[in-house]
Measured scan of single mutants.
Amino acid sequence: MDALKSAGRALIRSPSLAKQSWGGGGRHRKLPENWTDTRETLLEGMLFSLKYLGMTLVEQPKGEELSAAAIKRIVATAKASGKKLQKVTLKVSPRGIILTDNLTNQLIENVSIYRISYCTADKMHDKVFAYIAQSQHNQSLECHAFLCTKRKMAQAVTLTVAQAFKVAFEFWQVSKEEKEKRDKASQEGGDVLGARQDCTPPLKSLVATGNLLDLEETAKAPLSTVSANTTNMDEVPRPQALSGSSVVWELDDGLDEAFSRLAQSRTNPQVLDTGLTAQDMHYAQCLSPVDWDKPDSSGTEQDDLFSF
């Protein structure tokens, strides 16, 4: 819950932080000083300027060897085509990944977070970031790969997607708890209302004896509580940590079903599988986004697919 609360507080303090972009060759504004600060901008989305290598189908939802083989196929196909790589912007948030063309600003792909089953910074092609997700059109699994400016960037994108998945799962947990509370309150309110109706004398007997209905007592009954809980029953509950912020979080049926399955089948359902080692994760978390744009010590960066 700490990640969720800190993310909400950060967004309320400075929503404009989320509009910064990394990996864009110096076009961005001043960047936060450390990885923790940038992680807090996830709610509205972190932007990464990358190059799209392509996509291939895979048979399993996750796995280092599986993704490595898929990336190898994608890279080989991209090299064989001889075409310049498409420059894209990857927007990562707890909602998922939005992929747009840098030149036309046209939407290429919009992947809900619950469809993503794996992401990684490839070991062999260490400047490549990739994720595996279920197609929104059918049940097939797709591996999408992107060329980053350097290994640090690939690791940073991988960690960002993993963190977005974690925050999304926490949102789901909060929403589920809130819905259970509202359902319980609604049920209790309905029981109270039913009890009051059972003990209320029939209207005919009131008229016969000349008694008047006590409207004041009726007004004191917990009807307002019942209506408050039943009027918006169809509205999706939102985490309290975000009250007053500009973010509107809505959970669709697909996300609810997917996270429910994860909660039942996995020990740590909030953790998205990645190909990063503990050492890689520690190294990337210690980086400032400013470091992502620094040239690798191995030599001059080449803006070309064939540089790796």
Score class of each variant (00 low, 15 high):
Arg266Ile: 03
Lys72Val: 11
Ala121Pro: 00
Asp101Asn: 10
Ser112Tyr: 11
Thr209His: 09
Thr36Trp: 14
Met233Phe: 04
Ala284Phe: 07
Val192Lys: 03
Arg13Gln: 15
Lys87Ser: 15
Gln20Glu: 12
Leu262Glu: 04
Ile132Trp: 14
Pro61His: 02
Gly23Val: 14
Ile113Thr: 03
Ala263Met: 13
Ala162Arg: 05
Pro269Leu: 03
Pro202Trp: 12
Asp304His: 07
Ala228Arg: 14
Lys166Ile: 03
Pro222Cys: 06
Asn211Pro: 07
Asp293Met: 11
Gln197Asp: 03
Arg27Asn: 14
Lys79Ile: 04
Arg261Pro: 10
Leu17Val: 14
Asp122Val: 00
Leu42Phe: 06
Trp172Met: 02
Pro201Asn: 07
Trp249Asp: 04
Cys119Met: 01
Phe306Gln: 15
Glu250Lys: 10
Val58Pro: 00
Leu17Tyr: 09
Asp291Glu: 11
Ala70Asp: 02
Ala7Gly: 15
Glu109Leu: 14
Arg115His: 04
Gln197Ser: 08
Asp296Asn: 11
Leu31Gln: 09
Met124Lys: 06
Asp101Pro: 01
Ala18Pro: 10
Pro201Met: 11
Ser297Thr: 11
Ser224Asn: 12
Lys51Asp: 03
Ile113His: 03
Ser6Ile: 09
Ser175Lys: 03
Glu250Val: 03
Ser14Asp: 13
Met281Thr: 08
Ala76Gln: 05
Asp37Glu: 15
Lys127Phe: 00
Ile116Ala: 00
Asp291Thr: 09
Gln279Thr: 08
Gln240Pro: 12
Lys127Val: 00
Leu206Gly: 10
Ser288Val: 10
Val167Ala: 10
Asn211Arg: 12
Ser227Val: 10
Thr231Trp: 02
Leu215Gln: 06
Ala121Arg: 05
Pro15Cys: 01
Asp214Ser: 06
Thr300Leu: 11
Gln240Leu: 12
Gln285Ile: 06
Gly189His: 05
Asn105Cys: 05
Val226Leu: 12
Leu53Thr: 01
Leu276Trp: 05
Asp280Glu: 15
Met46Ile: 15
Asp296His: 10
Ile132Ser: 06
Arg238Phe: 07
Ile116Lys: 00
Lys79Leu: 02
Ser93Asn: 11
Ala241Glu: 04
Leu287Asn: 01
Ser245Tyr: 03
Arg13Lys: 07
Pro237Cys: 09
Leu57Asn: 14
Leu203Cys: 04
Asn105Val: 09
Arg266Trp: 03
Ser265His: 11
Gln163Asn: 15
Asp37Tyr: 10
Gly299His: 05
Gly54Pro: 00
Asp273Glu: 08
Asn105Ser: 14
Arg266Lys: 04
Lys166Gln: 13
Met153Pro: 01
Ile113Tyr: 04
Leu141Asn: 15
Ser246Pro: 10
Asn138Gly: 15
Asp252Leu: 04
Thr230Gly: 04
Gln240Gly: 04
Ala219Asn: 10
Ala154Tyr: 00
Leu85Phe: 01
Ser246Cys: 12
Ser112Asn: 03
Glu250Arg: 04
Glu216Ile: 04
Ala258Asn: 07
Asn268Asp: 09
Asp122Ala: 01
Lys184Asn: 14
Val248Trp: 06
Ser21Cys: 14
Gly96Phe: 02
Ala3Ile: 09
Tyr114Ser: 04
Gly24Asp: 11
Gly26Thr: 12
Phe306Lys: 00
Ala145His: 00
His137Pro: 10
Cys148Leu: 01
Cys148Arg: 00
Phe129Trp: 11
Gln270Cys: 01
Ile97His: 01
Lys184Ile: 15
Leu47Ile: 03
Lys62Thr: 09
Val161Met: 03
Arg151Val: 13
Pro32His: 15
Ser117Ala: 14
Glu40Phe: 02
Leu287Val: 14
Glu180Trp: 09
His28Ser: 15
Ala78Pro: 00
Val75Gln: 00
Gly45Glu: 15
Gln136Cys: 15
Leu255Val: 13
Ser298Leu: 02
Gln187Lys: 07
Lys150Ser: 13
Gly96Met: 01
Asn110Arg: 14
Val236Asn: 02
Ala156Leu: 11
Met233Leu: 09
Lys176Met: 10
Arg151Cys: 01
Ser49Cys: 14
Lys181Asp: 12
Ser260Lys: 01
Gly210Trp: 06
Asp293Asn: 13
Gln60Ile: 12
Val128Tyr: 00
Ala78Met: 02
Ser135Trp: 00
Leu212His: 14
Glu40Cys: 04
Thr209Tyr: 09
Ala130Tyr: 00
Lys220Met: 04
Trp292Tyr: 11
Ala78Phe: 08
Arg73Lys: 13
Ala133Lys: 04
Leu4His: 06
Leu43Cys: 11
Leu141Phe: 08
Asn211Ala: 10
Arg39Asp: 05
Phe165Val: 03
Ala70Val: 02
Met281Ser: 13
Thr274Ala: 03
Ala278Ile: 09
Asp253Thr: 13
Leu203Met: 09
Val92His: 00
Thr89Lys: 08
Ser205Val: 06
Gly210Arg: 12
Asn268Cys: 05
Ser288Gln: 04
Leu276Ala: 11
Lys127Leu: 01
Glu142Phe: 10
Gly96Thr: 02
Ala78Val: 10
Ser21Val: 07
Ser93Ala: 10
Ser112Trp: 13
Val111Glu: 01
Val236Cys: 11
Ser265Arg: 14
Ser175Pro: 07
Glu142Val: 15
Leu159Gln: 06
Val111Gln: 08
Glu33Leu: 14
Ser307Gly: 01
Leu47Glu: 14
Lys79Asp: 00
Glu250Met: 03
Asp291Ala: 09
Asp303Thr: 06
Ser117Asn: 02
Lys83Gly: 08
Val271Pro: 06
Lys294Met: 12
Ile108His: 04
Ala18Tyr: 04
Val161Gln: 01
Ala263Asn: 04
Lys87Gln: 15
Gln139Lys: 14
Lys83His: 12
Gln270Ile: 04
Lys83Trp: 02
Cys143Gly: 01
Ala263Glu: 07
Ala168Tyr: 03
Thr274Leu: 02
Ala18Phe: 10
Lys152Arg: 13
Cys143Asn: 01
Glu44Gly: 06
Ser140Met: 10
Asn229Trp: 03
Val226His: 08
Lys204Phe: 04
Glu33Thr: 14
Lys19Asp: 09
Met55Asp: 08
Glu216Ser: 14
Lys152Ile: 06
